[in-house]
Design a protein around this nucleic acid. Sequence first.
DNA 1: TTTTATTTAGATAGATCGGTCTATACAGGA
DNA 2: TCCTGTATAGACCGATCTATCTAAATAAAA
Lengths: 188, 188
Amino acid sequence: MPASKRDQLLATAERLFYDQGFHATGIDRIVTAAGVVRMTLYNHFASKEALVMAVLKARHERFMASLDTAAAAASPGQATLALVEAHGHWLEQYSQHGCIMAQAMGEYAEHSAEIHALATAAKTDLLARLETAVARDGLDHHTRLARRLFLMLEGSNTAVAVLGAEVALADTRAAADALLSAAWSETP
Amino acid sequence: MPASKRDQLLATAERLFYDQGFHATGIDRIVTAAGVVRMTLYNHFASKEALVMAVLKARHERFMASLDTAAAAASPGQATLALVEAHGHWLEQYSQHGCIMAQAMGEYAEHSAEIHALATAAKTDLLARLETAVARDGLDHHTRLARRLFLMLEGSNTAVAVLGAEVALADTRAAADALLSAAWSETP
DNA sequence: TTTTATTTAGATAGATCGGTCTATACAGGA
DNA sequence: TCCTGTATAGACCGATCTATCTAAATAAAA
């Protein structure tokens, strides 16, 4: 069965928002690219802001699901590295030129508290998953370590855009390994 | 002496672009906030795109100068950490809710190759400074290590926006220390 | 077949966008 | 004093923005 008009709109808007930016992408371009008429969009979404919210929410849920799947499938003691790998895989597939949540935070910081809060929550959700994984792997100082890994993964968003996925993700993996090793030997 | 109209425009535009985003900030708002008339802007800058370029260029030069000053004043063997400190200091002062260059890359990736290239060059300039410092400090594998530190510093841009400057910068410092220690003990 | 919900087409609204134009005012330096 | 460069005020342009409205077409469910 073909995707619903609503799903077509979500997928098209996500692509355009990510490639062109939020404010630079007009309603007309979205509906044209989705092969749909303007009223169909406003039938499914109350406003452009509501559309942005729905796009980010759906994308975030997909991202979290891929993290959770990877963590659940990891061998004992390997949950943290599995998250790092899953994050890298996501960047390779869907996020080659920067993080859409960071972009949304910047574009809507003073224009929509709702969108800004959603994007911020997406970041803290990732941090929370890291904390859970680090704790599950039996590593000490798990909050501190999780925050350091968070720094790395956030940095890899930009690094992929600047240096390319191959180089950036290899660096991220190696740096994560170094942080994890250092965590064992470091004095508390 | 009061700042020139041109400088007023640059400072005002920088603030508005950073706080509200590039596309979401109109020419009218800039000139009004700068206390200047519309034609004065177009007398000094050929277009909005040229204004964005000038703003980013000036900001980047200020940033680079602060890095170079810090590196030059560092004790022998401490240039790398001095750069990390200087970067953190910059975030505290001027970049509390995300990196304006990353924002520009996102907003202009498909709208202005010139702006996108400038923002990308800003990132590679930071990476180059890190490489120089790491080499000057006599650390091995300096390219690889510099790229890992680059990841950290890029991550701290987002981390400051999400977790606040205090927490994020403490983590960044600690993680950089850990990476530097690990660099000594790691097998090539 | 009738009802109900969805989609289409297209006109329309008012605001704002980046950018241009002209005429006027006002400096400081020659 | 005159001249040159800069700033002001404000009208103006066409394009685009988000959003709404109506009327007709379409399809699936009852």
